[in-house]
C-alpha cells in the first residue's frame, strides 16, 4: 500500500481506492459471516464432545469394573492370556466431509460389539465374566471413536477460526483504515487543488480587470 507521499492525488486514483475499499469491506463482511458460522459449529461440536466424553467415561468405568471382576474370578494370568488371543482390529467406514473448506473425518456409527466366538479367545477355560468385560470394552470403543472424531473436528474448526479471525482483523484494523486514510488524503489534496485553482482564477480575473480599467482610463 502506497504511503501518503507516494499517492498521486488524481480522480482516477480516488476511484481506484474507493473500489478497493468496497472490495475490502465486502471481504470483511463475508469473512465475519464465516467466522460467526465457525463459532456456531465449534460450540455445537464442543457440546457433542461433552456429552460423548461423559457417556464414554461412564462406559469405561463399567468396563473396568467388569474387568476387575474378571481378574478376581479368572485370575490375572488367564485374563491377560485371553486378551493376547483377542482379535484387536475393528472395521470402520471412514469418509470425509467438507465444512467451509475444512476437511473433517466422518466415521459411520462403528460396530465394535462382536459375539463371543468372533473375539478370538478360546471359549474353553474362560469365564462368562470375561465375555462381559469384553462386551463392555467394545461398547466403550463405540463411544470413543465418535469422541475422537469430535475432538479432531474441534481442533480443526478452532484452527480455521483463528486464521479467519486473523484475516478479519487484518482487513478491519489495517487495510480498511489505510484505504480510508488514503481516500481522505486524496480528497483533501483534490479540494486543495480546487481551492488553489479558484484563487488563481480570481487573481487572474482581478489582474485582467485592472488592465482593462487602466486601458480605458
Amino acid at each position: 500500500m502506497a504511503t501518503a507521499s507516494e499517492l498521486s492525488p488524481t480522480r482516477t486514483e480516488l476511484i481506484r481506492l474507493r473500489r478497493r475499499e468496497a472490495l475490502a469491506k465486502t471481504g470483511h463482511d463475508l469473512l465475519e459471516e464465516k467466522m460467526d458460522a465457525l463459532v456456531m459449529e465449534l460450540f455445537s461440536v464442543l457440546r457433542r464432545m461433552q456429552e460423548l466424553r461423559a457417556s464414554a467415561f461412564d462406559q469405561l468405568e463399567r468396563a473396568h469394573r467388569a474387568l476387575s471382576s474378571c481378574f478376581a474370578a479368572m485370575g490375572t494370568q488367564e485374563t491377560v492370556q485371553a486378551a493376547r488371543e483377542t482379535v484387536k482390529s475393528v472395521e470402520l467406514e471412514v469418509s470425509t466431509r467438507n465444512l467451509m473448506g475444512i476437511v473433517l473425518p466422518v466415521i459411520e456409527r462403528p460396530s465394535a460389539v462382536r459375539n463371543a466366538l468372533g473375539r478370538g479367545y478360546s471359549m474353553h477355560g474362560t469365564s462368562a465374566l470375561l465375555d462381559r468385560a469384553a462386551l463392555e470394552f467394545e461398547k466403550a470403543l463405540e463411544l470413543l471413536v465418535p469422541l475422537a472424531v469430535a475432538e479432531a473436528e474441534a481442533f480443526a474448526i478452532a484452527e480455521e477460526l483463528e486464521s479467519t479471525k486473523r484475516r478479519v482483523n487484518a482487513l478491519e484494523y489495517i487495510l480498511i483504515p489505510r484505504l480510508r486514510e488514503a481516500i481522505k488524503f486524496i480528497m483533501m489534496r483534490l479540494d486543495e487543488i480546487e481551492r488553489e485553482n479558484f484563487s488563481r482564477l480570481k487573481r487572474i480575473k482581478k489582474i485582467m480587470e485592472e488592465r482593462e480599467w487602466t486601458r480605458s482610463a
Binding site: M1, R20, L23, T26, G27, L31, K34, N98, L99, G101
Partner: peptide, 17 residues
C-alpha cells in the same frame, strides 16, 4: 496485491460447495 488477496479469499470462501 491486497486486492488480489481479497479476491482469492472470496473465491476460497465458497470452494466447499
Amino acid at each position: 496485491d491486497p486486492e488480489r488477496l481479497i479476491e482469492k479469499e472470496l473465491a476460497r470462501l465458497n470452494a466447499h460447495l
